[in-house]
């Protein structure tokens, strides 16, 4: 594998890992606050992509005229409006689910695992609501930004790829800053540290939980729109596999840790892309791309066996 091919795959891996990382952030934030695996999160990603699709199609219908192609500023504006609109609406969906399904259960003191099952059910509900309302046909996500291909020293990449990677890293830095340096972030960390004492200190625990769901769902919406812009195909079950894998990367990174979600997401992206890439090298043909999941999950199994709480996770001390 020469250097330029390696760099090419590296870029692909970074893009693919960005999706995992963005979705994994939502898992890890909710988990950090509530210790709840929000299995509906993969489908929130799907909802975000579809909401984005409808907003973008609607806006394109208003702005475009048949005579001239859209000017750059207009398409950029549409992109930004789509992202913001979808993030707001999807955040609302996320917090709505929390209100209707999770909070009543929490307040009754149901076992954590019942919350998990409820989350699984909500996920299936979202998928099949979509399927029964919109039908089984895939939707084509409109091309909001003109794809441009740059080539630098044998490595070619598109502007969308750069945008995806850049946005993912930017969002993670912002999130890390929010969690470390703002009052709401401090409250989130405090809740995950001690759920009993924090409300006694006057922290509005339900408001903080809602904020967590809004942020997590908005990030999933961002990932959904980026996914749509990069691959242009939306289907009702697009969130299932990517959601489970994002969850796995969150756990491998150490669930509850924002850095962990990022590292885990990129790691899974690397493994998956490079398994496929290795299969194209002479001598490695036996490693067909169908081995992707097998290798990825075996590596993750090994990592978790060596470090049972993930890469960044800290083992909780048990008092005896």
């Amino acid at each position: 594998m020469t250097l330029d091919i390696f760099l090419q795959h590296l870029l692909n891996a970074l893009q693919w890992g960005s999706f995992y990382a963005l979705i994994a952030l939502g898992y890890t934030m909710v988990y950090g606050v509530l210790l709840l695996i929000n299995f509906a999160h993969g489908d929130i990603f799907m909802v975000g992509a579809y909401v984005g699709f409808f907003i973008a199609t609607f806006l394109l219908g208003i702005f475009s005229n048949a005579a001239a192609p859209l000017p750059t500023w207009a398409s950029l504006l549409i992109l930004i409006l789509t992202i913001l609109g979808s993030m707001v609406i999807t955040g609302g969906v996320g917090v709505g689910i929390e209100r209707v399904a999770y909070r009543p259960l929490r307040e009754r003191g149901a076992s954590r695992l019942y919350l998990v099952i409820t989350a699984l059910m909500i996920g299936i509900l979202l998928e099949y609501l979509n399927l029964s309302i919109l039908g089984a046909a895939d939707r084509g996500f409109p091309e909001l930004i003109q794809t441009k291909i740059y080539t630098v020293g044998g490595v070619s990449f598109t502007n969308i790829k750069l945008l995806v990677i850049g946005l993912a890293i930017l969002v993670m830095v912002i999130l890390e800053l929010i969690v470390r340096h703002t009052k709401i972030g401090m409250a989130m960390r405090a809740i995950s540290y001690d759920k009993v004492a924090v409300p006694l200190m006057g922290v509005p625990i339900n408001a903080i939980i809602s904020a967590t769901f809004v942020i997590g769902s908005a990030l999933a919406a961002l990932a959904g729109i980026m996914y749509g812009s990069a691959y242009h195909v939306l289907s009702f079950d697009m969130g299932i596999l990517i959601g489970w894998k994002a969850f796995i990367s969150a756990v491998v990174g150490g669930i509850g840790e924002i850095r962990g979600a990022m590292v885990g997401g990129f790691l899974l992206g690397f493994i998956e892309v490079f398994v496929v890439a290795l299969g194209q090298i002479p001598g490695f043909e036996w490693l067909s791309s169908t081995y992707r999941d097998l290798v990825a999950f075996t590596v993750l199994l090994v990592i978790l066996t060596i470090r049972p709480t993930g890469i960044f996770g800290v083992a909780r001390r048990q008092k005896v």
Binding site: I37, V251, L300, T305
Partner: peptide
């Protein structure tokens, strides 16, 4: 050595590994 959610992930991975194999 592993409990709870980390073990959940291992079971999940085993499910995928079996299916993929």
């Amino acid at each position: 050595r592993t409990r709870g959610d980390y073990l959940a992930i291992i079971t999940l991975a085993v499910n995928y590994i079996v299916k993929s194999a």
